[in-house]
Structures are given as structure tokens and as C-alpha cells.
Amino acid sequence: MKLKTLAFWISLVLFGLFLALSVVYESTIYLYIASALPVLFVPLLPDFGSNQYIKPGKNRGQVEIIRTTSDSGASPLIMIRFYPGYVRWNKKWLYFSVSGISAYPMLAIPGDQTATLSALLHDLKAHPRKKGWIGIRLANLKQRTQNMSYTLQEINRLVIHVEDIQQVLTPGKGVSSPASKSTSIQA
């Protein structure tokens, strides 16, 4: 159990204890202590409102996650297609599950009017508790669109390299270049 979760439960139990003591002993001091304790545990509450989740099987008409395949050897991509306005850009993270994503050939994706935005490796992180879930930092994407010809509300497709997702999900196994031996160059 994380320290923050443990501290939350301890402070909640202390709140209940001091509240019960104030009733049993009819003491205002215990009541004052109990009323001050929420100041301590409110910062420990989880921040549910800062994330948006694309849940598998829900919002079928509004959002779709596709994995592209290619015979040309190009890197496969994950595309998140959605109606403009579906993504709440005021949130911190947009999470989606990588399991159960449909795979289509590159040419099978319809060519509708799109405003596409790429999510790069530094925009991604693994969900701290849910295995197989990836988060996209929306603030980075918002900043990237400031000099573009379209607005956030017009964007209807996010593109992510599968290699980046694999690197985020397996942090110790990412591509790393070994340190090269120093060589001297002679003229």
C-alpha cells in the first residue's frame, strides 16, 4: 500500500475516533480536533477529475482505437479516432487500454476530413495502477497546437507509434545505445 493511501486511511480513522470521543465525552476539544483533521486528509484524496478514460466497449460511436499494420516495413501506429470535442482538453491525462485494439491495414482506414496530432514518447506514461493502460499528457498536445492552422476542437485523430507504447510499458527494455569507446581521430 502506498504511503499516501495509508496516510489517508489513518487520518480518516483518526477523524472518526475524535468525532466519536466528542460525542461520548461531550467534549468540545475532541470536536475541534475532529473538525481540524479534514484539513490534513483532503490533500490526500485522489484527483479523479484530472483524467479522462477511453474505456473499451463504451462510447462506440464517439471513439475508436485502431492499430495499423503495414507490409512495407513501416512502424505500426495506434490511431485514436474520435468526434471533435470528445477529448476534454482541460484534463491532465487521456488514458486508454492497449488490450483488444483492432488491427487494420494502413489503406483500410477511411480518409475522412481529419486534423491529426501526434503523441510522442515524452507525452506518454503508463498508468500507475492499471496494467496495460497508457496515458497521454494533454497539456503537451495543447501546447503543440498553438502554432497550427487548426484548433483543439477540430482535432479528431491522435497518432502514436507502437514502439513508443512498448517502450513506456516496458521501461527497462527500451532502446538504448551502449556507450561507445572513445577513439582518437588522427589527421
Results as ranks from 00 to 15, higher is better:
Tyr53Thr: 03
Leu141Tyr: 06
Val42Phe: 03
Leu117Lys: 10
Pro38Ala: 03
Thr28Gln: 12
Leu121Ile: 13
Ile80Gly: 06
Tyr32Ala: 06
Lys92Arg: 14
Pro76His: 03
Ala103Asn: 07
Tyr104Lys: 05
Phe41Pro: 02
Pro76Ile: 01
Ile134Asn: 05
Val42Ile: 12
Gln52Lys: 05
Pro46Leu: 02
Leu121Ser: 11
Ser27Val: 01
Arg88Lys: 14
Glu64Ala: 14
Ser102Gly: 06
Met79Ile: 10
Gly61Glu: 10
Leu121Pro: 04
Leu31Asn: 00
Thr28Tyr: 09
Gln52Phe: 04
Gly57Cys: 09
Arg144Thr: 12
Leu31Met: 08
Asp71Phe: 05
Pro38Ile: 02
Gln146Met: 12
Val63Gln: 04
Ile101Tyr: 05
Gly49Leu: 08
Leu124Tyr: 09
Lys125Arg: 14
Gly85His: 09
Gln52Trp: 03
Leu124Trp: 09
Val98Asn: 02
Lys125Trp: 05
His127Lys: 07
Thr69Pro: 04
Leu40Cys: 06
Arg137Cys: 12
Met79Gly: 04
Thr151Gln: 12
Val23Gly: 03
Val42Glu: 00
Val42Thr: 09
Ser149Leu: 15
Ile80Trp: 10
Ala139Leu: 15
Arg60Cys: 07
Val42His: 00
Leu45Ile: 01
Ala115Trp: 15
Ser99Tyr: 11
Ala20Asn: 04
Arg129His: 10
Phe18Ile: 00
Ile29Gln: 00
Leu77Met: 12
Pro110Met: 09
Leu117Met: 15
Pro84Lys: 05
Val42Cys: 02
Thr116His: 07
Leu19Arg: 03
Asp112Ala: 11
